[in-house]
Amino acid sequence: MQPHTNDAPLDGNAAGGLLSELFAFDVTTASVICEGCETQGEVAQARVYGGTMGALLRCAHCDTVMIRLVHTPHGFWLDMRGARSFFVKPPAE
């Protein structure tokens, strides 16, 4: 995703490359239930913030931080406490 120096967020699909370093499937097409407002939505439609220190995916409805990702020289950090659950469709045949 693009590190951006503006405070405008990008869509969740922008984090696809970063998430692919951790997951074997395309997380951006999964749906996620936000821990803050219990809304279900596609990861691709969440808001991505803070590309320079790490990536944050916030709920498009209530701004709750659902996923935090930080890539340091020592490894990958992932926090998903704001995401209650994911629904992943199997890849198309």
């Binding site: 693009q2 590190p3 951006h4 120096t5 405008a8 990008l10 922008a14």
Partner: peptide, 10 residues
């Protein structure tokens, strides 16, 4: 409706 936001970016 599908959206993709572009910058302004770094």
């Amino acid at each position: 409706i599908k959206t993709e936001r572009f910058g302004p970016t770094g």
